[in-house]
Design a protein around this nucleic acid. Structure first.
Lengths: 198, 198, 198, 198
DNA sequence: TTTTAATCGAGACGGTACGTCTCGTCTTAAA
DNA sequence: TTTAAGACGAGACGTACCGTCTCGATTAAAA
């Protein structure tokens, strides 16, 4: 990750952690306050009290800054929790996803990056590498456990299923439609079958 | 549509249809060739052989131009066809949607506008009014007929169902994943039940 | 004058005199109110309640409009009066010139055209033909009479003398310096000799 | 001068002298080649290989650019030389002035600025401050010395006399009339008296 | 009285230049 | 060597006028 070279294992050799955080937060704040168009490198620099050059030294573009904040935030807010029956874990995860997308500032960052990926193939690639793939990897584990535990059919198309599960939620978020818990529940019931026990 | 005032009823006083089409096509072409960032009013003007002022006279922004092309193209390519069993009509429509999003130039316009809507609330509103709502209205009719003909349950949540059906397809298109026919078919089977007869 | 083609030869009949005057006055007013830069064909048209095309039909450019007003106004205000001793007539004429340039709106038009002639060779030529030469012709008569009546030396360089007489007055007007009567009087005394008789 | 902030006192912090000169020369060239109307900020920028913003950063308008070139050029070409009898020095200065106005490129700049001053009161003021007044101050010294040395009458109206001397020369230059040396000589003889000695 | 031809107002059109904005790079001096 | 500060080339923004070109509507002569 562009932003991590810092105080890693061996030899710090400069780089101001304070400045790095100031930049990430400034970018985040600007996006929430004024939308993606309001996020400019110049604006970030001035709000973070940092020189433009300092930003360009460490991040190739503003998209990379936003990706850094997204990876950090989503790493926390969208970490699948492997407890209870797999289907319940999926349901829990999708509820987290819905909340993240519609309620949290970092959710706006994710949607903005999905948006920007439509405008620029390089962003699309970066977004896939830094967010989509790693996140999907974490998601897979949930379904894989369900298969192993016999709650889900053996031949299940894991990626296809996740697209069917995430798709409607992301679609609603992108089009500004509310996502009640019931929507998520019915979705999970429809796709994975209703809660096993009953 | 902003672009229609032309040769309406009698003769309101002008508007060059040729210029209008040149602008729409130029915008379309630029988007496909260079992405959303490559669509500039100046670029459109020069490619269309039109004065910038002519563009600003009729369209408030480049987004409105793209919306005009989208509405025109989607009106053709995404018109639901009410023939055969309702579920089959839905399946046919979703296949059209998948093809539109992944194969046709106008599909890139749609995705770009979804993207831009994430960056700008005004665009989001416009996009909803000019595309999402009218298109959803046309979609509703498909499911409503299915309910009337007894192929679908009475209490079906029509909008929710459409979000569940479109969501995965749009999500795959947005993330650059292929959409084979089988993906659409399994989706429809899962959500509306497998083809009736068989 | 550019405005005369009308009621020529037989009787094609046409051309709106009202519009012609409205244009001349609008141009005049705009020049006085907002300076030469504020004189635009569009501005004249809108203030005169006239279509742009009507202006272009009768005048090749805004400079021609201003020349029309100048010729009309200067024809009245700067007509040399051939009464009394020639030197007194010259003095009277120069006082008129000073007053015209510094006090009357039409004087602003003259200065503006002198100015524009510095920017555009075609304007310079037009200005010379339509104003400078005819006016100089009228001026010459004053000195020529003085020579004939013996008040002025036989070999007098008429044009050179007029340049020496007008130069300082026009120069002061161009540089925004006051022109008291005494300045004119001393100028005439210095160049043509003090009042003869006294 | 607007252009001098550069390498002043101790720690100027920027300003590209190369760009500054390129702009001045480009403006100068354009004026001579295409007239005042051909001097556009865009044209200057492109010819000077400079960004428009760089021009707007340092000059409020194209007039200020031309004033910079004028002040620099006139400072050299129109510096009065205080040698020999005062009347002779005046004569020499006026010959320089005539040559400057009719032969040198920088003279076209002066005339263009006199012209533009007629169109715009702000330009008139600027022109007075930056050129007319400083130049007049230098001119005064010539006549003042003549008074001190007894070559010129004690009560001489210095500014009025300069207007009478410069007026005819500037007038001829503005109206595109030749200015032979004899014209200047007769002017000086008429106003200051013929060369003392003879 | 009808025709017909030029004028009028209105305003769209292809252009050029405006002055502003933001981009990403480059330069400077201080720490 | 890295910082903050900020000048630089580049180029799009949206606006103002340019001069040309329809368009109906009006008007006055000739038919």
């Amino acid at each position: 990750m562009a932003a991590e070279r810092t105080t890693k294992g061996r030899a710090p050799h400069r780089r101001n952690e304070e400045a790095r955080l100031a930049v990430l937060h400034a970018a985040d704040d600007l996006l929430v306050e004024k939308g993606f168009g309001g996020v400019t490198v110049e604006g970030i620099a001035s709000r973070a009290g940092v020189a433009k050059q300092t930003i360009y030294r460490w991040w190739p573009s503003k998209v990379d800054i936003l990706l850094d904040t997204l990876v950090e935030d989503a790493g926390r807010a969208l970490a699948p929790r492997q407890t209870g029956p797999a289907v319940d874990a999926v349901r829990r995860y999708l509820r987290d996803l819905a909340r993240f997308l519609t309620k949290e500032p970092a959710g706006r960052v994710l949607l903005a990056l999905v948006g920007e990926a439509q405008h620029d193939a390089a962003v699309a690639e970066l977004f896939r590498e830094r967010y989509l793939e790693p996140q999907r990897e974490r998601e897979r584990a949930l379904l894989v456990r369900g298969i192993q535990e016999g709650d889900l059919p053996d031949g299940l198309d894991v990626d296809g299923t996740w697209d069917v599960l995430c798709g409607p939620i992301v679609f609603r978020a992108l089009t500004g439609v509310q996502i009640p818990k019931s929507f998520v529940d019915r979705l999970v019931d429809g796709v994975l079958g209703p809660a096993k026990a009953a």
